[in-house]
Design a protein around this nucleic acid. Structure first.
Ligand code: ZN
Ligand code: ZN
Length: 88
DNA sequence: TCTCAAGGTAATG
DNA sequence: CATTACCTTGAGA
């Protein structure tokens, strides 16, 4: 098959050159992650209140949903759930 | 020793 | 004020 020379951000799928935070994420997401934590992520609130802004666009304009998707990718990469592989 | 990854800062909209 | 891109240092092979 084909092995892409470069990777893409698992959060916003932008083309990246290096990995960050332990996952294939772009500079923006890595900076956003630290930034959100440095502020107090619990203070964030969904723009709509539905928590699914990431379902409409690759990257949500609301900090909460953006951080939510970021967390999902982070734990999925950090937690290779042995029960998640349907064919392993 | 060299390369990859992580973390912080600076500039712009 | 928040977001994005670059630079520097540390660890691993
Ligand atoms: Zn990204
Ligand atoms: Zn949202």
């Amino acid at each position: 098959p084909v092995q892409p020379p470069m990777r893409n951000c698992l959060i916003c799928s932008v083309q990246i050159s290096e990995c960050h935070l332990g996952v294939d994420c772009c500079l923006a997401c890595s900076a956003f992650y630290k930034r959100t934590i440095n502020l107090n992520k619990e203070s964030l609130k969904c723009k709509m209140g539905t928590d699914d802004c990431t379902e409409f666009k690759a990257i949500s304009s609301c900090r909460k949903c953006r951080f939510l998707k970021l967390c999902e990718v982070l734990e999925q990469s950090a937690n290779p759930s042995k029960d998640q592989e349907t064919d392993k």
